[in-house]
Simulated assay, not measured.
Amino acid sequence: MGRPPRNGDGGAEPGANRDALLAAARLEFARHGFAGARVGRICEQADTNVRMVYHYFGSKSGLYIAVLEAAMADLRAAELKLDVDVTEPLVGLLQLFDFIHDHFDANPQLISLLSAENLMQARYLKQSGVIPAMSSPVPKLIQTLVKRGVADGTVRKSVDPLRLYVMMVALSYFHLSNAPTLSAIFDEDLARGPWRERQRRDARQMIERFLRVG
């Protein structure tokens, strides 16, 4: 008897192979980076075959770009949960920080993917036409909240939306992406729950004091 047919042999629902490949590839690229990742391992984990990679994504690099796009889409979905029309401006900006911080904290694979892509000077992210488009609403959301906050006297003037967003990401990302080296240098386990919770409170307070009038 031959082996049971894999999903890639036609037994899966339409799109199931693609979703399985993306999930397996996200883990593989996060663990091994682009150069170290192996398409064969991805297909084995996804229970499909190599031709499905080329059918859906065209190449290994196409699959990697799709993984980056999916990971960034998840982050954007978390950020854009905020309803700016019913949220008080300062409260809304702090909630946005909470969304960003909690998303990075819950998604270590995203941190690995972004760290690896930064080492490659965003070589593959630059090839995506999707990521810049999905990112553009975030500074606009911040700008809307800042303008309303300035108008009602709760947010100080001259807050640049993009600079504020970068600050929020830095305070959500750096301590996680650099936890192994910082922990070794200072003999303090930055991955411990209590340390991370204290960092979250301190970072949120920094954002609030930066934004608040007076």
Score class of each variant (00 low, 15 high):
137 P>V: 06
84 V>P: 04
66 A>Q: 01
56 Y>R: 00
211 L>Y: 04
173 Y>P: 02
201 R>Q: 13
178 N>G: 10
87 T>H: 05
212 R>K: 11
153 G>Y: 07
137 P>F: 05
86 V>Y: 07
76 R>F: 08
209 R>N: 12
185 I>P: 00
92 G>Y: 01
154 T>A: 12
12 A>Q: 05
16 A>P: 03
17 N>E: 13
88 E>D: 14
121 Q>C: 07
63 L>H: 04
111 I>N: 05
121 Q>E: 13
168 M>G: 07
28 E>M: 08
154 T>V: 10
207 I>F: 02
86 V>Q: 10
11 G>L: 11
48 T>Q: 04
194 P>W: 01
137 P>H: 03
103 H>E: 08
191 A>I: 00
47 D>V: 04
113 L>P: 00
102 D>W: 02
20 A>S: 09
28 E>Q: 14
129 G>L: 08
41 R>F: 07
105 D>E: 13
183 S>C: 04
61 S>P: 00
97 F>G: 03
188 E>D: 09
164 L>F: 06
181 T>N: 10
46 A>T: 06
182 L>V: 10
197 E>K: 10
114 L>E: 12
105 D>N: 11
70 A>W: 06
122 A>H: 15
149 G>M: 07
76 R>P: 01
198 R>L: 10
124 Y>G: 01
51 R>Q: 10
87 T>N: 03
101 H>K: 07
167 M>Y: 05
24 A>T: 09
135 S>Q: 15
191 A>E: 10
143 Q>M: 06
103 H>F: 14
103 H>T: 06
134 M>V: 10
162 L>P: 00
61 S>V: 10
128 S>T: 04
117 E>S: 02
119 L>T: 06
184 A>P: 00
93 L>K: 02
134 M>R: 08
67 V>G: 03
8 G>F: 05
191 A>P: 01
143 Q>A: 15
133 A>P: 02
85 D>P: 00
8 G>S: 07
66 A>R: 02
2 G>S: 15
181 T>L: 12
187 D>Y: 00
19 D>G: 02
39 V>N: 09
95 Q>S: 12
89 P>Y: 02
94 L>M: 11
207 I>K: 00
91 V>Y: 09
132 P>Q: 04
143 Q>E: 15
57 F>L: 08
171 L>F: 09
32 H>N: 14
13 E>P: 01
109 Q>E: 15
104 F>E: 06
133 A>Q: 15
93 L>E: 04
122 A>F: 15
